[in-house]
Amino acid sequence: MKLFGSGHGACPGCGLPIAVKSVLEGTGPCFVANATGCLEIISSQYGKSAWGVPYIHSVFENSAAVAAGIEAALKALGRKDEGPVVVFAGDGATADIGIGCLSGMFDRGHDILYVCLDNEAYQNTGNQQSGLTPPGSNTTTTPSGKVLPGKIKPKKDMVSIALAHKAVYVATASVAYPRDITRKAKRALEFEGPKYLQIHSVCVTGWGVDGKQAIPVAKLAVETALYPLVEYENGQLVRVKKIKDRKPVEEYLKLQRRFRHLFKHPKGKEVIAELQKIADENAKKYGLDA
């Protein structure tokens, strides 16, 4: 049986199904807890489920806790051999509204792979900013205006938050590299305990990207070091995706409607410089430059 099927309702060119099928390719049959959001809406309409694995959606902010309950039940009922437990939650569900449940899941050490599908805003409801929206992004709740150049603050550092909880495996990935996602999902399951995988996923409508440009744009996020691909095992950085001839952030920004204003806004240069600084710091911190 397929673990995730065609006929789901994702927009053409959406990154989420790429992320999901790549994770499931690595995990095999598993239990999925999914937060309210794009993925849930495109895959779990009554009578039209796209899932070939046992799947549950409860509410927006509790998928980490629901997964913890599944894991506990499997343990209590002696059914742990049925498969691993995986969470799929969006960036808002992870970094904002659901961070309490996620912290509890980490803290109690549940044997769960938590996958954050990071499309950098509440895209299901129309591109409202989340804690993982990057600075300068023009969202419907942080619009650019005469004074403000879009979102002000940087992305919440979920990797550090996961590491601070002593999650056994922490990694970032991108829909630009599906085979890497599969490898990381598989690798994650070699560790017992809470695991965190954050996957950068293009939202063609929210970001204002042509469907055909989705993967090239996702690649540029990695190639500019704005989205570093890193991998921690037991708290140690073990692998990073090196970048040959790192590109300036403008190349990534100019392809997306959400950043278009930065090229004419009075504060645009400042924000672009800030983004470049973030990229430079990522490159330095993780030793990304090949």
């Binding site: 913890a68 309950g69 599944i70």
Partner: peptide, 18 residues
């Protein structure tokens, strides 16, 4: 980590047959 979490954990557990 909260009553909200407690109820959520039980949703997952109950759906799994516990």
């Amino acid at each position: 980590e909260s009553e909200f979490g407690a109820a959520s954990i039980l949703v997952g557990a109950s759906a799994t047959g516990a």
